[in-house]
Design a binder for these strands. Structure first.
Lengths: 389, 389
DNA sequence: TTGTAAGCGTTATCAG
DNA sequence: CTGATAACGCTTACAA
């Protein structure tokens, strides 16, 4: 039991805050304030591992209180220039590095936006990241990136980690496996701004940033038709993804508009992967009555087809027209050059980031779920140029 | 002043911890414990913005203490199955999401590794990221990626942010501008594990993961020589980067070994960028006595040269041999295919990550600064195949 | 202008 | 097996 150093009373001692990081007591009897000078109790710099200098260290060495230090560090008004300078100097001298963790904890915001992408292997997502990164950095936000590796369980655990780390907002592009969206609904429920991009779904009411896959697809197929191709096959993606469905829809629409017959055995849907693309491609090229053109859901698949055709000695574009989607960096150089639909990757990233920041800043006003549709662009190269007009 | 509800004493009231998140008092006179039932003081769930359920909420609703909840949540031993289950159920019911921020603060570790890369535009760094990400995720670490955009000031501010966020370790590849390394020395001083990769420097005593640029370069130039090229130019990178110096060294060594004369006006060093590459390339190709081969410091530059040569009608590989470095995805398809040196990107990422984890886990033992040198591989394609043996 | 003390949400060390 | 309480490092009313 603690006794008062002045009146030796024991029952009337109350805690009375801290001074220089030490417990301070007051004796209610004689109204005497004191701290215990037990050397063991002073400055408990335990935790041996390299003590990081904190605001308290600065306060102690400057002879002011923590709050004053905090204010000086943040350039708050109402602080005398001398104290401010003293604090700032001491901070520099002690090599003070603010602890963002503590800051975030008390502010309960992290100034960090999370981003989950299914993969990095193509330049597609990296380019989107660049766009988002640019805007966020400018706005003073950090970006934490995770990749789900096209795996639903990883995606779920990523969102959990993001939640635990209290990111201020999330940008996500779904895996091709994702069919359940409960992990996203958590964000709605918790009021954490969420923006879906590129690989989106209808079942969660969050803003979505996509490109006009339908239109892009339509243009691609129309271009093939205008170049005299008749029997156009479609190598599509997994149908749970909206992109795949939209591209399929665009294909069908163009074919119908020009009165072309769709041979259903030449419309294939499957997972994205080089291996699958080879299998599907082989199937299409080995068909006894081969298509005279193939519109693929992405460039990786289209490239496989071009390479396979070259191996087999099928002449491109004369015997086979090929069009892809996305404009990968290598597409310009594949065979005679791959005709493709360019996506505005940079803009996708930028738009998504912009949107999530708006949601964060707008606080109160419920912004209605909405969608931004960016334009695509047809890039004509050798793999489809058979213009016989 | 607070008075005891039992004996009405005023001077002998002491704080006595908290119960259900409310201040609890004890009267030292009658030894009566109580809390104030002032409704305003109960559960100060202020901070209106969507209260996140915390451990305390669970404790309150389950009727146990926070510590018990914490233990239950982490599956600590010494807890009765009933309590555990009750807590776990309540946690699920209240949709509890742990606050990693608070956890990190008290643990003073974040389970997060930072990574700073100069750019994303080539597939080079993304591939390294994939390698590192894979290993770190497996080891239960998060990865926070920042990009310095080849800017020294951004690099510095990135490291500051990493420091503030108390990452457990940092992987960094320097910008081509970086000439001052104080921002890295901070990590040494603070004892935060640091690993440099790819773009490293000598002035900071941290482990480095690099590829054998010298050997790779040597092989590239030797390959050109063995294919009958005589007057080989070198389009190099900025000399403050070790990679550039090593590649230059490899070039010189190979030329010397085979007794080839180095024409110094055909050895150029400059910044990495497509634009610069075009300028330097034009210079080399417009030389009145043009080199018969060019070894470029990277594929992007080599590609520019190939394209320029094709425009000018210079035949590759007959009139001009070209070799690059890195094996970009498009390199296989450029012109007749670009001969290049493949770097083990995946392994670079994996090795760096592995190393930083080792440093973190090894705690006490000072591991000596060291270097890991990974092997490169010569990929022969059309742009240099003029074998006249 | 400065100081006090109550949080932010956890874990960990002691006591029971 | 469980509870109380002091950290972790910082911000911010509220007092002085």
């Amino acid at each position: 039991m603690i006794s008062c150093p002045k009146c030796s009373e024991v029952g009337s001692i109350m805690k009375a805050g801290y001074v220089r990081n030490k417990q301070r007591y007051v004796c209610k009897d004689c109204n005497y304030f004191f701290t215990l000078s037990n050397p063991d109790q002073i400055a408990p710099i335990k935790n041996s591992r390299r003590h990081q200098t904190t605001i308290i260290d600065i306060a102690r060495s400057t002879g002011v209180s923590n709050s004053t230090v905090s204010r000086a560090l943040h350039g708050h008004a109402d602080i005398s220039p001398e104290t401010r300078n003293a604090v700032l100097e001491m901070a520099a001298q002690l090599d003070y590095q603010p602890n963002q963790l503590a800051y975030n904890l008390v502010k309960s915001r992290t100034n960090t936006i999370g981003m989950i992408v299914p993969e990095f292997t193509n330049s597609f997502f990296p380019n989107i990241i660049i766009g988002a990164h640019e805007l966020l950095t400018e706005a003073g936000y950090n970006l934490t990136i995770m990749q789900s590796n096209e795996s639903y369980p990883i995606e779920v655990s990523n969102t959990k980690a993001m939640l635990a780390n209290r990111i201020d907002g999330l940008l996500i592009s779904l895996t091709q496996e994702t069919n359940n969206y409960d992990h996203l609904k958590v964000f709605e429920k918790r009021g954490i701004p969420l923006v879906l991009f590129n690989r989106v779904c209808d079942y969660v009411s969050a803003p979505k940033v996509v490109v006009n896959d339908f239109e892009g697809s339509f243009l691609a197929v129309e271009h093939l038709i205008l170049n005299g191709y008749e029997r156009i096959a479609h190598l599509g993606g997994p149908l749970n993804l909206l992109v795949s469905r939209e591209r399929l829809r665009g294909y069908r629409a163009a074919m119908e508009k020009y009165g072309k017959n769709i041979e259903e055995n030449m419309v294939i849907q499957g997972m994205f992967s080089q291996q699958k693309a080879r299998i599907y491609g082989k199937y299409l090229l080995d068909l006894e009555s081969r298509p005279d053109a193939i519109f693929a859901v992405n460039d990786s698949s289209a490239i496989e087809i071009v390479l396979m055709a070259l191996e087999k000695g099928i002449r491109i574009p004369d015997e086979l027209g090929v069009v892809g989607f996305s404009d990968n960096p290598e597409s310009a150089y594949i065979g005679p050059g791959l005709t493709t639909i360019r996506q505005p990757t940079h803009a996708i990233g930028k738009t998504s980031a912009q949107w999530v920041l708006q949601l964060i800043e707008s606080e109160e006003e419920m912004i209605l779920p909405n969608e931004k549709v960016l334009k695509t662009e047809l890039i004509v190269r050798g793999s489809s140029k058979r213009n016989r007009s």
